[in-house]
Design a protein around this nucleic acid. Sequence first.
DNA 1: AATTCGGGGCC
DNA 2: GGCCCAGAATT
Length: 341
Amino acid sequence: MTDGTPHFNIHAFRNALVEWFRREGRDYPWRRTTDPWHILVSELMLQQTTIPTVLGRYDRWMRQFPTPAHLAAVDEQTALRSWEGLGYYRRVRSLQAIAREIVNEFGGRFPDNAEGLKRLPGIGPYTSGALLSFAFNKAAPIVDANVARVLARIDNYSVPVDSTEGQKYLWSRAESLVDPEHAREFNSAIMELGQTCCSISSPDCLLCPVRPFCSAERPETLPVKNPKPQVTRVEHHDILYIRGKSVLLAKCPEGKRHAGMYRFPQREDEHTLSLPHVLKQTYSITRYRVTRYIHHVTDTPLLREGEEFVPLDKIHGLPMASPDRKALNSPTLGKLLDHIR
DNA sequence: AATTCGGGGCC
DNA sequence: GGCCCAGAATT
């Protein structure tokens, strides 16, 4: 059933969804504000990151950087350190670049149109629509994983939602559905529906406010997605080398993964590999399944580009990826580092 | 059109 | 362990 059929009354659909949201919608910090800076921070944090994770970080970030000027004023290292643990660190670089542009070029004001917003780094179709609707209450469409799931089910649409054709269809559909009178609430509502009634594996259609408008025959089988890339297993060998009260760390180069962040130096030579490891970790990063060994080196290693000795009391302030921070805070390494504390 | 970029939470 | 996510940028 689509809005071309006599059964689909678009006004009734919008009203049912918005009224349900007014009753049942959950309270998030980013739903208590229309300040574009606060909305922008929440949207960048939430890109490919779950609400529970962001809830644990959002308020602290907003206290530290209450305005674009606050983030614009600190160095990149500080921004990365504050983002630590959230991953996809390009997001915080984009956020800081936006903050500086807003302050220095736009007199502290955000663009309120899609063309202006999409020119900013890290802002694509979704985040642009989110800012326009959540901050400015403009009738811009949004399509995220929640909206894609809801729309695919409502239309019983079985083309992969992550295909070009699927994306084109969903964006067009979202644009035709968004309520021009209540854009902010409508977009919040359709996302909320995807998180609650219209969840992935066990949709609760009995509680769904828009069930009369839904064509899904087997909702749990929708949406269809393209297959994921295969997981590759890799092994990394890194070193812990202590000199005086300092530890040898490497700064990750620009343009690569974890750019600007610090890590334990990598060594894959036979001598290092022959040393027993003091720590073994396994973790996943994007499509890689990593087994990582940290070897305790006592002979002075040859220093490489980007490697430097960092006093132990300075390491806390440097940005590190989660596995490295966890390694540093592990009891095993902690015991070794206690000697130089 | 495919790949790169993290990490935590959940099952 | 595998799966998922309030995506965007790059190749």
